[in-house]
Simulated scan of single mutants.
Amino acid sequence: MTTAYIALGSNLGDARGQVLAAFDALDRLPHTRLTGRSPLYLTPPWGVLEQPSFINAVACLDTTLAPHALLDALLATERAAGRVRDGERWGPRTLDLDILHMDGTTVSDERLALPHPRIHERAFVLLPLNDLAPDLLLPDQGRVSDLLASLDVTGLERLP
């Protein structure tokens, strides 16, 4: 089993419901078990600012899926939630699932980069990841808690 951390986000429709349903969908993936889920956070949009706020969270999985097989399963989960990938980066979406890190695994190809190369820039990822794994050391980026301490978390709100 490999531990994997998955970022979840949504800002269209019932965003909270989409993220909660995605936790359940992750737990149903083959050869995979959901072992942790962060609190939900309401976060301002990043990249494209003219869109609704997001609900963001992070899931921790134990899986025997290879990185690309896990990616394919996440993309299928997004499609089942109504996600249409139209090429727009950082735009609104019903569901976004990204592999952040898989223990002991590095990948760099046209489909996947692990660990995710921009974790260190994104408070909306680091805040929920810090709830699950503050001491996680991300290769070439640093310790999650240290990375989070260097970012502005203004406007990020933990939801009840």
Rank of each mutant, 00 (worst) to 15 (best):
A59R: 08
P139T: 05
D146V: 09
V48R: 12
L71Q: 06
D24S: 10
G36E: 07
I99C: 03
S10L: 01
L12G: 10
L49R: 11
L97K: 10
G155E: 06
G13F: 01
L61C: 02
R143T: 00
Q51L: 05
S108T: 14
L95T: 02
A7L: 11
R16P: 04
W46R: 05
A80T: 02
R16D: 06
T43F: 07
P39N: 15
G9F: 06
G82K: 02
T43K: 04
D131Q: 10
F124R: 06
D109Q: 09
V84E: 10
A57I: 12
I55W: 00
A66L: 09
A113I: 15
L74A: 15
P67L: 12
D98S: 05
P92T: 01
T106S: 09
H116T: 07
V107H: 04
V107P: 06
D24A: 14
R33K: 14
A21T: 06
G87H: 01
M102Q: 05
D140G: 05
A22E: 09
L29Q: 01
A69T: 02
A7F: 03
R111V: 01
T32Q: 03
G104C: 04
R85N: 09
L147P: 00
L61T: 00
G9V: 00
N11M: 01
V48E: 08
N130G: 11
P117M: 04
T2H: 15
G91Q: 11
P52A: 13
P67R: 13
T105Q: 15
G91Y: 04
R118N: 07
G142A: 13
L75I: 11
S38M: 01
T35S: 06
L29N: 07
A22S: 03
R37M: 07
R85P: 01
L75H: 15
A133K: 02
T105M: 15
M1N: 14
F54W: 04
V125L: 08
D72G: 14
V48Q: 13
G47Q: 12
T105I: 15
R28I: 03
P134W: 01
P45M: 02
L20F: 12
T94L: 13
S108E: 11
T106M: 12
R79P: 03
G155C: 11
L137V: 15
T154V: 13
S145E: 06
I55S: 12
R85C: 08
R85A: 05
L8G: 04
D152R: 11
D62F: 10
P92D: 08
L75N: 07
P134L: 05
A57W: 12
A81Q: 08
A69Q: 10
L42N: 15
R16V: 08
L127H: 01
R143M: 03
R37T: 06
D62G: 12
H101Y: 14
A21P: 10
F124I: 03
T63Y: 02
S150T: 14
T94V: 10
D109F: 11
L26Q: 08
D96G: 05
E110Y: 11
I119V: 04
I99W: 04
M102S: 08
P128A: 04
L127S: 09
A149R: 07
L127V: 13
I119Y: 04
D135R: 13
P139D: 02
F124L: 04
G17V: 05
L65W: 07
N56R: 10
I55Y: 03
D98H: 10
L159Y: 13
Y41R: 05
D24R: 10
H31D: 14
W90R: 11
A69M: 03
V58Q: 02
